[in-house]
């Protein structure tokens, strides 16, 4: 197919610009994690270890509290599962795109964060780049930003010369931009409304700590029950032909 060796360089070059918003966001929420973890008495090597092995924003924020006397591993399992439960649904959209990725597939599953998942749906794979290598490049770049952020936070969090309060809004802005891009593509607008509306309703009903699981259940139920409305016949056949 393509010349070996060249494929990855081209994939990383093509992927990098798409990941810059994640670079900004991850560096700073990674720094915040590193600072918190370091305050618990863990140096940058621990922060790097955790960010390499776990790679989850909210999951690692929550986990910082586990490093305390009397920690119960069953409690850890339960809380982490609840924090990360939304990820269960992400793979459903990527079953086919990850097929045939061989050894890389394990890493792709591991690195499926909110941000990486979202980027996969707005990035356009350039025609000269292999799609699998492109997706892998996005995942690996995002992961490396997260590791760098954690290390910087643990090493030098207190030395940052300006007040970075509020910089994590970059993540919110990233999701809004992806949401608008999705909206402008004029596909699945109803599903986009369902997702946001279900989240708002469940947030009001269950509070900010517990709303994600009920929201995901409502979204799944609405999407399954409303299939005829969500995806009219004509659109479905278009999608199938595109496949």
């Amino acid at each position: 197919m393509k010349r070996k060796g060249n494929g990855y360089a081209a994939a990383f070059r093509a992927a990098f610009p798409y990941t810059i918003p994640v670079l900004t966001g991850y560096l700073f929420i990674g720094i915040a994690f590193g600072v918190m973890y370091q305050e618990k008495g863990y140096n940058f090597l621990w922060a790097i270890l955790m960010s390499v092995m776990v790679y989850a924003g909210s999951g690692q924020y929550v986990a910082v509290n586990f490093f305390a006397p009397g920690v119960n591993l069953l409690h850890v399992i339960f809380l982490e599962f609840m924090v990360n439960i939304r990820h269960i649904f992400y793979g459903l959209s990527l079953l086919e795109r990850f097929r045939g990725m061989g050894k890389k597939k394990l890493y792709m599953m591991f690195s499926l964060t909110d941000e990486t998942y979202s980027l996969f749906f707005v990035t356009k794979v350039p025609p000269e780049v292999d799609e699998h290598k492109f997706l892998f490049a996005i995942a690996l770049l995002d992961h490396s930003y997260w590791i760098m952020g954690s290390a910087i936070g643990a090493l030098a969090g207190s030395l940052i010369p300006f007040d970075a309060k509020g910089i994590d809004f970059a993540m919110t802005a990233l999701f809004i931009v992806i949401y608008i891009e999705q909206w402008m593509s004029a596909k699945n607008r109803l599903a986009a409304i369902v997702g946001a509306a279900a989240a708002v309703v469940c947030l009001l009903a269950f509070g900010s700590e517990n709303f994600i699981l009920p929201a995901m259940i409502c979204i799944m139920a609405a999407l399954l029950c409303g299939r005829k409305v969500m995806e009219p016949k004509e659109e479905r056949s278009v999608v199938e032909h595109a496949d």
Partner: peptide
């Protein structure tokens, strides 16, 4: 992959991204 799952795979991303916007602002 069952057709229903493929359908969910197509419509879940926009719904989840909508949910994530709310999640960030919770």
């Amino acid at each position: 992959i069952p057709e229903t799952v493929r359908y969910l795979g197509r419509v879940l991303p926009p719904a989840v991204i909508g949910m994530l916007v709310v999640y960030c602002l919770k």
